[in-house]
Simulated assay, not measured.
Amino acid sequence: MIQDLLDFLMDFGAWGLFIHSFFDAIIMPIPAFFLQVPLSMAHPSNALWLATVGYIGCLLGTPFGYLIGKYVGNSILYKILKKSWVDSATKMFQKNGEAAILIGAFTPIPFKVFTIMSGCMKFPLWRLIGYAAVGRAVKFYVVGLLFYYYGRAAEGMVKDVSMYIFVIAVPVLVLFLLIRKRYRKKKAEAQEKPSKIEAREADLDRPI
């Protein structure tokens, strides 16, 4: 059934990948990676174009996945997705908050889990799209670049590409988020100090 669907979409080339990527962000049970690879292998010179088509399709589908979560709620997650995916994504949300979206874009967990869950948790849509733009660009274009430069020989390289991206990108992202959190904390403390001083001076000036 799944292979039949992939074969059907593959017959449409780039349009098939666009459709697959669009619904991959909403409800498609198979990640777009599994169509991008055979299409890129068949036409390595078009690999970057295929990556672009898939990337655009994914970004356009992201708001629809978000709206499903927002208006249908958590009940839809367990009906259309694997329990292990939902449980893993939920733990990431509870532990890391909005960082889970950005990290989730690089994980092997299908991104639809995060688009729907973002809607369930009323996460800002514009921020979800921003994080999706970064994470999905890496996943689509790493595959595209490998096939563009190495041709069909890249088939063996991309088998574990999601794992490599996850291992390399996530530590960098965690470091970035920690630095940003520390910067924001210092900025808030710096803004808080003058207000405390002003409050103290106001107390001293108050007539006894």
Rank of each mutant, 00 (worst) to 15 (best):
A199Q: 14
Y141C: 04
S88M: 04
L204T: 10
G151S: 02
L128R: 01
T115N: 06
L102Y: 06
K91P: 00
S21Y: 06
T90I: 08
G54V: 05
V53M: 02
L48N: 10
A42R: 13
A154F: 07
I2P: 00
I27T: 13
F8A: 12
I116S: 06
F64K: 01
I19T: 14
D205W: 06
V86H: 05
A14N: 11
T62M: 05
I109E: 12
T62C: 14
I56S: 07
D205R: 11
V143A: 04
V37L: 03
L125K: 04
A199H: 12
L77H: 08
P194G: 12
W49L: 12
I168P: 01
L81S: 11
Y149T: 15
L178M: 11
T115I: 04
I26H: 07
G69P: 01
Q94S: 14
P29V: 07
I19N: 05
L125W: 04
L39H: 12
R136C: 05
V161H: 05
Y71R: 11
M92S: 15
V86G: 09
G73H: 09
F23K: 03
V134T: 11
L177G: 07
S88K: 14
M157T: 04
E201L: 14
I101Y: 04
L67G: 09
P44R: 03
G135D: 06
L146Q: 09
A153H: 13
I179L: 13
M28R: 00
Q3W: 04
